[in-house]
Design a binder for these strands. Sequence first.
DNA 1: ATAGGGTTAG
Length: 593
Amino acid sequence: MTLMSVSSRFCSFLLRRRLGTTYSCSGFELLSSSSSIGLVHFHSHTNLRPKYNVPHSTHISNSHIKLRHLLLQKSKSGFEKLDDALVVFDKMLKMRPLPNVIDFAQLLTALVVMKQYPVAVSLFRDICTLRIPVSIITLSIVINCCCHSNRLDYAFSLFASIFKRGFVPNVVTYTTLIRGLLSQHKSAEARLLFTNLIKLKELQPNVVTYSTMINGLCKTGHIDMALWLFRFMGKSDSPPNTVTYTAIIDSLCKRGLADDALNLHSEMMEKGILPNVWTYSPIFQVLCNFNRWEEVSLLLKQMIEDMKISPNVYTFNILVDAYSKSGKLDDAKEIIEMMNERGEYPNIVTYSTLMQAYCAEGQIDEALAVLDRIKIKEIRPDCCTYNILLDAYCRRLQLDIAMDLYRNMVAEGLEPTVETHRVLLNGLCRLGKPMEALNFLYKIQDQGHMLDIVIYHTMLTGLCKNQYVHKALSLFHLMSCNGVIPDRDTYNIIIRGCLRNKKFSEACKLVEKMVDCGFLADAATTFLLQQLLSKVQDPSLLALHQKCLHSGIQEEFHGLRIPKPIHISCPAENSMNQNLLMIMPEEVQLCKS
DNA sequence: ATAGGGTTAG
């Protein structure tokens, strides 16, 4: 058997495997067990190995040059279809001499651009099986793919293989792993990796490493550490750039700290670090939230005219949503007009937002008209679009129409989400059919659909409102068995349910349990308690009220959240390592041991 | 040839 025939049969086999039914199982199965497809036998014939070590330059043909040209382009834009990428890969495997490390890395990059992470991992597996050489860059690309597929286990096993293969991880490899850890909410581990890099003088983090760390710290709720690191960066060799500032600004905006965000926005401009479209979007969001409409208009003008930054779909969608939610439908439509004029065309999110606005105004026909119009424009409605309409019908108690729509969306090939199910459950409860809702819940659970905490909240609320508080209590106990841990909202929902149904002793027990778990009564619960106390003088109720007051709920009342002010301080000018380790005291302990 | 920001749905 010649090398070519084995190789080409082998290639087709791999391709079929990827294109066939087993393909959907992602590349990770291949990563763990290559022997399952009989490759071990293939390995043992050393003379069947492709002769990749033939110097490339002497054999470069026209097709190699064509390939290189194609890959350069596709690694930036991605292939139009997944199959196109697979066909190119198959052709590459048949070429002699084989394309080089860079060519294969570029093909993987094209798959990354297409967000086809598991496929990239699968191709990488084939590359290894065929003994095609890889580099630290190839490995970094694949580690990134594992992280994006939430497979940290594979990412770290590949990380270990870097050393076995005799490569050295670079700053990109480490940054990728740090991002992976943070995206999986493993912020302690990310911090440990980050500090160890510095402490063990492995390598110097660059501005991307810092920004990744800062963004991740913000997203995992460690904004104080993020701010510290941000100010530390200002004095380091890698000062913050636009992305770093944007991460902090976004975080401040999400906390409602509009003025702090605006100050930072001015600060960066003073330092000559130019904001971009990413920087402006969260600022618009927070200004809208606080009804600072004048400033919104001014900022939009400044952004476009002075800074010459074009708002994009994201920016515009934030504005459309904010205007709609404040009943300023005309302003929302004006923004959509502006989008069309500027060639930044509205997308499915824009139209779903607009439909949501019509539904909120009770103009469901207008919302349906939008749906018809986008279908003409060949914009495909997604699950969220349907969820909005489903919710509107459920609110009007037209559950039969909602169910029709539900069947429609499934027929269109859309997979219902937790939100879809939440909307339908809510609809059943509204109609006073809590037991049907509960049965529906069990049905979707049996079907293997995910039940999240929001679904439980909907069901608990529905049961309590329909005087099925005993059923609510059993569901409350059941949810932790199903791996969904009650949070502050869960406790407050069930406690209010008990109070409304005069189960005061049960409410007492739950408040105690809640406080033990570190949660407090919210404004609605406190308000209900006060209302009840003004009518009924029940001693257990009074004790309950006292307990709630002692647990310190005053900071939040009547649903108004008052954000705590943040002081952005500068780190003291000590030695670098001292300073950096100060932000992560837990890690210092770990490092010492 | 590899790494870092944002929108709709309780």
